[in-house]
Structures are given as structure tokens and as C-alpha cells.
């Protein structure tokens, strides 16, 4: 419950900041009665009201599959997974898709409880076949990055 309140409080502050920023949006020339600031201010305002209500009277979190409380080891895994995904996002262009995807998939597979060799093998197959499928067959251009010399 504390975490829920804290999260909503951060969200509320962000909403209020947005509301504050939106106040300055004014069109230099305007032919219409409603300018560019009314709508975002209305929406962020209503959202902040709703959040404020929820902070005062939080709804109990349901007992669905998604809402199970986290234990320490799951939390560590979630954080690790976020780091891996961020790494994937940041290396996608510099390292190129095949290499970045191979590394990400291997690490990711290990995190989900796979063993090193099968993970690496599956990842190798995945990254190469997806590269060929998307870049060559379906013409979705993907970066080769450091492997660019192979293309020549």
C-alpha cells in the first residue's frame, strides 16, 4: 500500500508539472476560440484529481495472477531484466541487430532459467534467422552494426 501511494504520488507530481508546463502553450496566431493548451490541461487536470482521490482512498490491490506480491529474488530478476532490455535498446544500433540480439537473448534466456549452452544455441539461431527473415525476406531494414564488413 505504501508503494502504491508513493507511485501514485510521483505520477501525480508528474501530472501537475505537465499541467504547469501546459499553461504556457499559446498559439502565436489563432483563428479558433480554443487554443492548444485547453485540452492537455483538462486531461492532466482530471487525471491529477483522480490520482489525488486514489492517494487519499487507495483501492485494495486485487488478487489476480498479475498482482502477486514480489519477493526479493523475483525483484532482483525483474531489475536484471530491465537492465538487459535497456542494454538491448542501447546496443541495437551501435552493435547491430544480430550481435545485440544474440547477447540479449542469451542473457535473457539465462534469467528465465535456461542453461548456458542451449540458450546460446537458441539465441544464435534466433538472431540469425530473424535477421534474414526481417531484413532480407520482409524488407524491414535492420542495422548490421559492427558486422557491416560481412556485407561487402
Amino acid at each position: 500500500m505504501i508503494f502504491q501511494r508513493a507511485f501514485m504520488a510521483v505520477w501525480l507530481v508528474a501530472g501537475l508539472v505537465m499541467l504547469f508546463i501546459a499553461r504556457d502553450y499559446q498559439a502565436p496566431f489563432s483563428y479558433e476560440p480554443v487554443g492548444p493548451r485547453a485540452y492537455p490541461m483538462l486531461m492532466f487536470g482530471l487525471m491529477s484529481l483522480g490520482l489525488a482521490y486514489l492517494i487519499i482512498r487507495p483501492t485494495p490491490i486485487g488478487d489476480g495472477e498479475d498482482q502477486k506480491p514480489l519477493d526479493a529474488s523475483s525483484l532482483r530478476k525483474v531489475v536484471a531484466c530491465c537492465v538487459i532490455l535497456l542494454g538491448y535498446a542501447l546496443t541495437f544500433q551501435p552493435l547491430g541487430f544480430p550481435l545485440s540480439a544474440f547477447l540479449t537473448a542469451t542473457l535473457c534466456g539465462l534469467l528465465y532459467g535456461g542453461r548456458l549452452m542451449p540458450c546460446a544455441l537458441v539465441s544464435l539461431l534466433l538472431s540469425i534467422s530473424l535477421y534474414v527473415l526481417f531484413d532480407r525476406v520482409m524488407e524491414v531494414p535492420l542495422p548490421l552494426g559492427v558486422l557491416e564488413f560481412l556485407e561487402g
Partner: peptide, 17 residues
Amino acid sequence: NWSLAPAIAIITGIGVY
């Protein structure tokens, strides 16, 4: 899961890229 999750992650990246 250990081969499904990486596949989802990578394909999602391609979709966004």
C-alpha cells in the same frame, strides 16, 4: 520460457525499430 521470452524480447525490438 527460457527460449520463448528471448524471442518475444527480440521481436518486440524489431517491431519498434
